Simulated scan of single mutants.
Amino acid sequence: MWQIFHKLGSPKWFYGIASKLMPWLLWLGAGLLLAGLVWGLAFAPKDYLQGNSYRILYIHVPSAFLAQSVYLMMASAAVVTLVWRIKLADLFVRSVAPVGAIFTFLALFTGAVWGKPTWGTWWIWDARLTSMLILLFLYFGVIALSSAISDEKSAARSTAVLVLVGVVNIPIIKYSVEWWNTLHQPATFKLTEKPSMSPDMWVPLLLAVLGLYLIFGWLACLRMQTEILTRESRTRWVQELVRSGEG
């Protein structure tokens, strides 16, 4: 187990593994996401209260899931950075922070589109919406801080601390609909409860969620490979990779 853990900290080893995984992540993810979106947007039945406007859920929910999950992954990597000082963990944080910001923006945008016909307004300072906006600012802060400090080690430590401070916002996002009076509806999926939607509505949603997670995996690998080539540009294995045309 420890040997695998240390191998994961090797940029060269990770680069090779990522190259093998990426085609599977991309095509399987794209297939599941496309199937879920086509099924949900075109063939799932209308909601008895919201009609067709609820279909934005098939984009909104996967984006919101990823927005929070990516930050939790970053927090785990931040712990590894601070405790074990494995530079690949910091590289992960730097690579996926922009991706997390995009998913958060997409969740906010689709939420606003959904909110207009449902609540009669594009935006309200609802607890869930406000905490999601804070998450977007946290992503921006991580991106800015990691770019502002020239020394890699100092940037890694400072960014890791910021990520861990901001992780307190994740449970606020999750439980905001239970802790406060909000307009936002409760979670669509709960591990301890049966889905309130019919199977022909929640199955495509599940496919879209799984597909987007796999697409994120592909994006994370792609961006990390780019960062590895930049950081390790002076090493022999990267120079050989570039000469062979694979880098």
Rank of each mutant, 00 (worst) to 15 (best):
I17F: 12
R231G: 12
Y48T: 15
G211A: 01
M224A: 01
L129Q: 00
L206K: 11
L205T: 03
A89E: 07
W27T: 09
I149R: 01
L222E: 07
F43D: 10
S19W: 12
S146I: 00
P204C: 05
A155L: 08
T121G: 09
G247C: 14
L57Y: 06
F189I: 02
N181S: 13
M224R: 00
V161F: 11
L106T: 08
M22I: 15
A220C: 12
L162W: 08
I86W: 06
A156V: 05
W27G: 10
A44V: 06
L106C: 07
S131F: 12
L191G: 14
T230R: 15
K7V: 08
V165L: 15
W179D: 11
N52A: 13
I172N: 14
R234S: 14
F43K: 07
I143N: 00
V113N: 07
Y54N: 04
W125Y: 07
F109G: 15
L34I: 15
I102K: 12
L66Q: 07
Q185H: 12
W13H: 14
S63H: 02
Q68I: 06
V80K: 01
R94W: 10
L37M: 13
G40P: 00
V70A: 08
S53R: 06
K153R: 10
M74E: 01
V80Y: 07
Q50I: 07
I59R: 02
A107N: 09
L136V: 00
T104C: 13
G211N: 05
M201T: 09
V163F: 05
K46S: 13
A156F: 06
L66D: 03
I59Q: 09
G9R: 06
P11Q: 04
V96W: 04
V142L: 09
I59G: 03
G9D: 03
E178Y: 12
L91M: 14
V238S: 04
S244D: 14
V203W: 02
R236W: 05
H60F: 06
Y175K: 10
Y71A: 08
V93A: 01
L66H: 05
G166C: 03
F103V: 03
L222T: 13
S69F: 15
A75W: 04
T230V: 13
T230K: 15
W202P: 08
A78I: 03
S158W: 01
K153F: 05
E193D: 15
R231T: 09
G29F: 00
F103G: 03
L191A: 08
Q239M: 09
S154G: 04
V161M: 00
Y54W: 11
V242H: 03
S131G: 04
V163H: 09
V113Q: 06
G115P: 12
I102D: 12
L26W: 14
Y15C: 10
P117S: 02
F105L: 10
G36A: 01
I173N: 02
V93S: 01
G217V: 01
S95H: 08
L133E: 07
S69E: 15
A127Q: 09
A127T: 08
M74Q: 04
Q50G: 07
W125Q: 12
Y54M: 11
S76R: 03
L138R: 08
W119P: 13
S244A: 15
R243N: 14
